[in-house]
């Protein structure tokens, strides 16, 4: 790896930009793809571009066979993040489960009695109002946002901000009836049908979850599907 490649790669990581490095095993020729920008001494053809896109999507490196020999295609995705609005009982299960699955978790709840270190050991907490918290956290395409408070005062501002972000998964807890009312309120804030369709509501895969921990499993499962198989998650 050339020093300039290393520097560019670290810069991409620091700015939260996805990058892919392609290196030919035979001679060490390499290319770095950061967004649309390609640098390095390895020619990047359609085969490698497709392999790079696939590597970012699956978050796994792989060997691509080219006419000039095998090329290792390695994705450098920004870390996965989960923002949970509502420091409720379900959150006490979802936060540690998501951490085990590799997410950096932040729990947002302006109610200090809910979002306390005693209830959420080892989890980042924010007592800001949800819209301010999301403005500060800046959800990206590797971020999931889940609202669990049942309270429109808290959930709506978070969903409003999430819909203005490229978050890969947006979900809201609540019955179908409350979800319909929620969509009407968000439409009044200027979100069109396509935007509103991004919200998974009620949150979670229909597993028949009965307890807070089981609901957490269903949300984490749906989040995983949205990440790994986005076509199936819609």
């Amino acid at each position: 790896m050339k020093s300039e490649t290393l520097a560019a790669l670290r810069e991409a990581r620091a700015s939260g930009t996805p990058a892919v490095r392609c290196v030919r095993l035979g001679d060490g020729a390499e290319a770095l793809l950061v967004g649309e920008i390609v640098s390095g001494d390895l020619a990047v053809d359609a085969v490698l571009l497709a392999a790079a896109a696939s590597a970012l999507r699956s978050d796994r490196g792989s060997l691509a066979e080219t006419a000039a020999g095998p090329v290792f295609v390695e994705p450098f995705n920004p870390p996965l993040r989960l923002i949970i609005v509502g420091a409720v009982h379900i959150t006490q299960g979802l936060a540690p489960m998501a951490q085990m699955a590799g997410y950096q978790v932040t729990v947002v709840d302006p109610r200090h009695a809910f979002a306390s270190a005693e209830r959420f050991p080892g989890v980042a907490l924010s007592n800001d109002w949800p819209d301010e918290a999301l403005d500060a956290l800046k959800p990206d395409a590797r971020t999931a946002v889940v609202t669990l408070t049942h309270d429109p005062k808290l959930d709506d501002p978070a969903l409003d901000r999430a819909l203005r972000s490229p978050a890969f998964y947006i979900a809201a807890l609540g019955s179908r009836k409350t979800h319909a009312a929620r969509l009407q309120r968000l439409a009044a804030l200027g979100h069109d049908a396509a935007a509103l369709a991004r919200i998974h509501g009620p949150a979670g895969l229909p597993l028949g979850a009965a307890t807070p921990a089981e609901i957490a499993v269903s949300v984490l499962a749906e989040m995983t599907q949205a990440l790994r198989r986005p076509k199936d998650a819609q």
Binding site: M1, L6, R10, G61, P79
Partner: peptide
Amino acid sequence: MPQDTDQILDTAAAWRAEGKRVAL
């Protein structure tokens, strides 16, 4: 992607900055 990626990249850069020969 393994979670220690940044640590490895940072270490490689730090050792290079010290003028050491480094392999990955």
